[in-house]
Design a protein around this nucleic acid. Sequence first.
RNA 1: GCGGAUGUGGCGGAAUUGGCAGACGCGCUAGACUUAGGAUCUAGUGAUUUUAUCGUGGGGGUUCAAGUCCCUUCAUCCGCACCA
Length: 803
Amino acid sequence: MADYNFKEIEKKWQDKWEEAHAFEAENGSDKEKFFGLIEFPYPSGQGLHVGHPRSYTAMDIIARKRRMQGYNVLYPIGWDAFGLPAENYAIQNNVHPAVITAKNIANFTRQLKMLGFSFDWSREVNTTDPSYYKWTQWIFLQLFKKGLAYKQEMPINWCTSCNVGLANEEVVNGVCERCGGEVIQKRQSQWMLKITEYAQRLIDDLDDIDFLEKIKTQQRNWIGRSEGAEVKFTLTTGDEMVVYTTRCDTLFGATYTVISPEHPLIEKLADKLTNYEEVKEYQKAASKKSEFERTELAKEKTGVKLLGVNAINPVTGKEIPIFVSDYVLVTYGTGAIMAVPAHDTRDWEFAKKFDLPIIEVVSGGKDVNEEAYTDVASGTMVNSGFLTGMAVKDAIPAMIDYLEKEGLGTRKVNYKLRDWVFSRQRYWGEPIPIIHCPKCGQVPVPEDELPLVLPDMEEFKPGENGESPLANATDWINTTCPCCGAPAKRETDTMPQWAGSSWYFLRYADAHNDNALASKEALDYWTPVDWYNGGMEHTTLHLLYSRFWHKFLFDIGVVPTKEPYQKRTSHGMILGENGEKMSKSRGNVVNPDDVVNEVGADTFRTYEMFLGAFDQSTPWSQQGLKGCYKFIEKVWNLQNIMTDEDGYSPELEKAMHKTIKKVGDDFERMKFNTAIASMMSFLNDVSKKGSITKGEYKTFITLLNPVAPHVTEELWQMLGGEGLLSLAPWPAYDEEKTVDDEIEIVVQINGKIRDKMSVAADLDRAGLEAVAMESARIRELTEGKTIVKIIAVPGKLVNIVVK
RNA sequence: GCGGAUGUGGCGGAAUUGGCAGACGCGCUAGACUUAGGAUCUAGUGAUUUUAUCGUGGGGGUUCAAGUCCCUUCAUCCGCACCA
C-alpha cells in the first residue's frame, strides 16, 4: 500500500472535478434546487485568513451533502472587490487599484481551489467588473426614480490633518486611523437611501424567515421601533412645539422641556429670547464637539435655559421652562422632549443639576428625590388628574385617547434606524450614475448608457475640500444633460462597498446575462437563497442592507420573493493560539498556505470543523491540527485491514447505522465537531474489531467526503466505486438498526448510582423495577430500610428512594 | 447604561426531552516495537484522605433526580451607545 500522499491526491482530484464540471449548477433543471451561500470575500492583499475557510467549509459540507442527496446545487463564489485597502495601496504605490485587485483575486482563487471547495466557478462574479456594476448602477437608478435615493447635506467625519472625509470604520477612538489627526464633523452633501421607508417591513418579515434568533433580535434592536405619541405644547409666545414621548402617561409630571441645539425653534424665537447670545454660544460649542467628545462627555449633562419664553403643560396648564441641551438628539423623534425627572433617569440627572422641580406621578418606587422611578410594568398613577389611580399600562392608552380627542397630540411610531449614507468621496467604487444639469437638476444617466465606467486615472488622492478623486477627471466629469443637451457635470461620488454586495447573490442565478441582472426564469427557480452563512458583524450592515434592496426589487417586480435569504446562520471566530484575535501586530496569524503545505487541505478542513462548536469563537491549536492529520491517515490506512465483503459485518452493523444517522443529523445542525467525533468513534470500533469490510469502508468514506473530499475520492476509486464519490448517493440508514437490543441501565438509591445492569431496551417500568430489586447489591444496601418510592424510567434508570 | 452571548478536567470541547457529567481530540503517564523518536501500537488519565466522597464561575431554591429549570450574584467577550 502506498503512503498517504496528500499533495498528489489533492491536485489530482481538483483537476478531475474541474474537467468533469462536477460542481456546476444547472439552469432549467427539473430537480429540486439548493442554493447555499457564503459571504463572498474582499480579496485583500494578505490573502485568505483561516477564518474564511471555516464558513466556506461548513457550507461546502452542506452543499456536497445536498448534491449527494440528489439536489441541483448552486454553491457560488465571487469577489467583493471595491474598497478602501486597494485604493490606499494604489495611492501609496502608484498602481491602479484594478491592477492590485486582479492580482489579489488571482491569489485568492489559487487558495480557494487549493482547499477543494465545490464552488461553481463558472458563475464567478466580481463587483468591480463593469458588466456587473452596470446592474448595481441600474438598481440605484430604480431607487432614484422611486424617490428612494436623494441628496442631502449631512455631517461627515473629517480628518483635519489629512484634509479628507473618512468612513466611520476609519475613525478609531475619535482620531484618524492613518495619521492620528483630530476628526471633526463637517457638513457635506451626500447621497442617501431611504431604508427608513422599509423599517416596518424589515421588522415584520423577520417572522417568516429562519434566521438565528440572536440575528433577528439584533436587527430588531437596530431598527429600534418605539410606540408613543407626539404632544403639542403651546408656548407663551403663541408658538408651538411638538415633543415625542413613549410615556405620555407621565405628562402631569412634565416640569420642563428640552430641545436639541439644532432645533429650528431657536431661530424662530431669536428676537423674543433675552439670552439669544448665550444660546447661540451653546449651539456653536455643541456643533464643534466631535462624535467622540459627545459620547465621552455623555455622563455630565449641559444646557442653557431659554429666557423670555416658556412652554405650557397642556394638561396642567402650568408654565414650564424650555432648555436647549445636547442630550436631546435632533435626528430622533421631533428633536424636542418633555422632561419628567421623576420617571426618567436622564431628565432626573438634568433636573438635579439645574435644580428643577421633580413631581412624582407614578407611585411604587423609591423616593423620586433620590432616584428616578422608571418601571412601566408596575406602578400606579398619582398626582395625575383623571389618570390618578390607574395602572401605568392602562394610563398610556388612556392618555393617548384623551390627547387625540382634545387635539393635543397623536399616536406616533418612531424608529432608531436612519437613512443610509450612500456616498463615498472615493475613486474605487461604482460611479453614481447621475448628471447635474444647471437647468434640469439631478438627471439619471440613461439606462442604455450603463455601465457608467470608472474613468482611468493616474492619481487617486482625494480632491480638494474632501471631494472625490473623480473631481480631477475633467474629461469624464464634463458631459451634456440627457434631458436638454446643455453642458452638465457628472456626479463624482461613488457608492459604498455595501452596494455591490447588496444583490450579488441574484447575479449567481444567471451570471452572464447582458439584458437583465438575471433572467426571470433563473430568479424564479433559484431564489430565495436557501441557506446563507456569514459573520455576526454583518448583521446590521450587509444583511440589513441587502434585505432592504431585495424588498425594493420585489416591489418593482424584479425578484419573486420578498426576502432574499430563507435561512441565516453564523460562525464563530478562529482566534490565535494564545486565545487573542489573530492579527499581524500580535504575531499570531496562521496562514492557510502553510497549513495546506504541511498537512494538506483535507486535514485543514477537518480540523477547522473539529476544533470547536461552529458558532463559537475558538483558539487555533497546532497540536489539534496534528490530531486531525492522524485521523485522516488512519482512514487511509484502513486499506490494511479491509476484507472483501460488500455488506456490513454483524459486529459493526449497528455502529454503522448509528454513525450514518448521527453524521447526517449533525451536519444539518452545523454540529460538525460532533459529527467528526462520531466518525472517529466508529474508527475506534473498527480498530477494536481489527477489520473493516469493503462495504463499511465505502459507506464511511462517503460520510467523510463532504469534510475531506480529496482523500475519500481517491479511496473510492481504489475500492472500485463508480464515478465520482462527490456525486454518489448519500448513505441511508435503517432506524431500527440504530437502536440497541440490550442497554445498560443505572440503578440509583436516593439519586446515587449503586449498580448497573444490562437489560432489554424495551423493558417496561414494572420489569425494570423487578430486575433492579433482584440485584444482590441493591438488596444488601436496602436491607432494613423503608422503600418510600421507586422511580423507573424505561431506557434510562431506576431510582429507589429509601429512608 | 441597554442588548446579545459565554463560564464544564492540564487544554479544545461533548452531554436532542431534567435521567450514568467529562463523548471525541490534544496533552500527560506507563509499557511494547525500535540504532533512534516530535513515528506507530497497547493500557491508563476529573479531584481526593479511593468499600467511598466531592465535583459543571459563586450563593440559594424546585425535584426521586439539575451542567440542563427558577431566583440571585460574579467574571469575561461582542454589539450599540443620552433614541425620550
